[in-house]
Amino acid sequence: MAGVEPLVEEAAKKAAVAWLAVPGAGPAYLVWCAWLGGSLLVVSGPGEQSAPGLAGAGTVEVSLRGDHGGRIVTWTAAVERMDPAGEAWAELVPQLAGKRLNGGADLATRWATDCVVSRLTPVEDAPLVPMPDDSQAAPPKPSPATRLPKRPFRLHRVRGAK
């Protein structure tokens, strides 16, 4: 873990969610995650969260937020699909299942049969993505639910002071 930035490790330890940008999968999306064994673990599949393109990706961009709610770091991660028969699964997935608030005793077993557990490991010596100068706020998508606001209702005419 010599190449992992201390900022990445500290932010990931405190993170409960992360934004993932998978190349070719559209805009970044939010996922539940946990930092275990020097990697960020993400569960996706039936009955769990959706993570489009994550299981087949080689690398992803991971953005983590700070205590203030804003982004503090974005880093490149190598994606590895964990094998339920592997040694890392036996070590990390029971800990991951223990961190779930609404899990059950058979959660790790269900993940092994129905879901994908992805291990996102920081790419050593990869540069951190710098903070942008602008807000990166996207404009709202068009919707038929939007309308122009009406002028406020006034019961009595208000006259100016003389």
Rank of each mutant, 00 (worst) to 15 (best):
A108T: 12
A137H: 10
L40Y: 04
A112W: 03
V93A: 06
V62D: 06
P27M: 04
W19D: 02
P127C: 01
S44P: 05
P132F: 03
G53I: 00
A16I: 07
P130M: 07
Q95G: 01
C33M: 14
G58A: 14
V4K: 04
E91R: 15
G69E: 06
R151P: 03
A90P: 04
V116M: 04
K14I: 00
A85T: 14
V123R: 10
G70I: 00
P23V: 01
L30S: 05
W32E: 11
L128N: 08
P142H: 08
W111C: 07
W19P: 00
M82G: 02
A16C: 09
A11D: 09
M82S: 02
G58C: 04
I72A: 03
A112N: 04
D133A: 13
E91I: 03
S143W: 13
N102L: 15
A34C: 07
W89G: 00
V158G: 07
P149A: 11
L107F: 07
P144A: 11
A51L: 10
A108H: 07
Q95Y: 02
K99N: 07
V42F: 05
G38E: 08
V60K: 00
L120Q: 00
S118V: 09
L64I: 08
S50E: 15
V117Y: 09
G45W: 02
T121Q: 12
P140E: 07
L101Y: 07
A15S: 14
L64G: 08
T76E: 11
A112S: 14
D125R: 13
R154V: 14
G45I: 09
V158E: 14
A78E: 15
V93M: 02
Q136A: 08
G70M: 06
G160H: 12
A34P: 03
P139M: 12
L120V: 05
D83Y: 09
T121C: 04
K14A: 15
L101N: 10
P149N: 05
T121A: 14
V42H: 10
A137G: 05
M131W: 03
P140W: 08
V62C: 08
A108E: 14
V22Q: 00
A90D: 13
A138E: 13
S63I: 00
L92R: 13
E9S: 12
R65N: 12
R151V: 11
V17N: 10
G26D: 01
P142T: 13
P127R: 10
R100N: 06
P52R: 02
W89A: 02
A77L: 08
T121H: 09
R81M: 02
A21C: 01
A138I: 05
Y29L: 10
G24Y: 00
C115P: 02
S118H: 06
Q95F: 01
P52F: 00
R119F: 05
P152R: 15
D134P: 02
A85E: 15
P6Q: 10
K162E: 11
L7K: 12
R157W: 09
L36D: 02
L41S: 06
R119D: 04
D125Q: 10
A2M: 05
S39F: 01
G3Q: 07
A108G: 11
A105P: 13
A145L: 14
G26I: 01
G38D: 08
S44E: 13
W89N: 03
V4R: 11
A105G: 13
H68D: 15
A137R: 14
Q95V: 08
E9Q: 15
A85H: 11
K141R: 15
